[in-house]
Nucleic acid binder design. Structure first.
Lengths: 138, 138
DNA sequence: CAAAAGGCGACATAATTAGTCGGATATACC
DNA sequence: GGTATATCCGACTAATTATGTCGCCTTTTG
């Protein structure tokens, strides 16, 4: 049942950190992957990879060189959980058979394709209805 | 992201089959694990295990012996996706750190415990709001 | 040009999921 | 009563996925 996974946790922790720093200093701060890794007590390489993804999707902006790092580019109220899940996990498909590149194991014999599609749509709409800001600000 | 897994798929397919049979014959039919396995093209042992779980939770009623099998005991509109997920997967906790028997990896250092609890509650409420009937009847 | 940062691919390990096997108990039918 | 056919249950193996590691590259600052 674990929809949540480590990468998603790290992403949320990182975004929360950026957001908190922004609130405190009233300006966008630059934070390196190393700092985030230390803060989250998570392996540097994994956190770095997550930040790279967020950067490639325009959530963060990367700056190279010494004193480099990332800036938060977007407002967290404008990013949905669905967006984040797609970025981190590649898809929000509930079951493998729903992915475009995979076929249903049971081929034409599956009796629940439309029910699963139905549920999948509900779940996607649910995650689309929740913003990151809404999750973090509790 | 796969909240859905094989056991849940088999459970849904089995419940759909029972429900369809009930609708067609206008009475509760008895169906064996073997029949369900053949119908779903899934391994007999796995399907059998899933049906045992549904039986132990009162969704199905088991009958031993030749001509035995299971009967659908409950109305599918009164079982929620949350119920089914708990039965099959044991818990609906989003993250391991939320389970009562496990501790958070990050101990007191986790910065997103309340956000994750927050999201977890939303997800649980979502699955509690969807009945099996609602998923299957599309 | 060295140090420190991001970017990327391949690999190794850990954890979870899925499936298998063996044997037990219960019931119907001959 | 014995056999066939069911449900039940535990332990095990295999497959898949999630997680973490390593190496090397590019970019920028001082």
């Amino acid at each position: 049942m674990n929809t949540m996974n480590k990468k998603l946790e790290y992403a949320l922790m990182a975004l929360k950190y950026f957001d908190d720093q922004r609130s405190e200093s009233l300006q966008d701060v630059i934070v390196s992957a190393k700092q985030i890794a230390e803060m989250t007590h998570a392996p540097y390489e994994v956190v770095a990879r997550v930040l790279q993804i967020l950067s490639s999707r325009g959530i963060l902006k990367a700056e190279y060189g010494t004193q480099g790092g990332y800036r938060l580019e977007k407002n967290l109220s404008q990013i949905t959980m669905h967006d984040l899940i797609v970025m981190i996990e590649g898809s929000t498909e509930l079951a493998k058979c729903l992915s475009v590149d995979k076929e249903c194991d049971l081929l034409t014999k599956c009796t629940i394709i439309s029910p699963v599609q139905n549920l999948n749509q509900k779940v996607q709409n649910f995650y689309k209805s929740i913003s990151i800001a809404e999750v973090l600000n509790v």
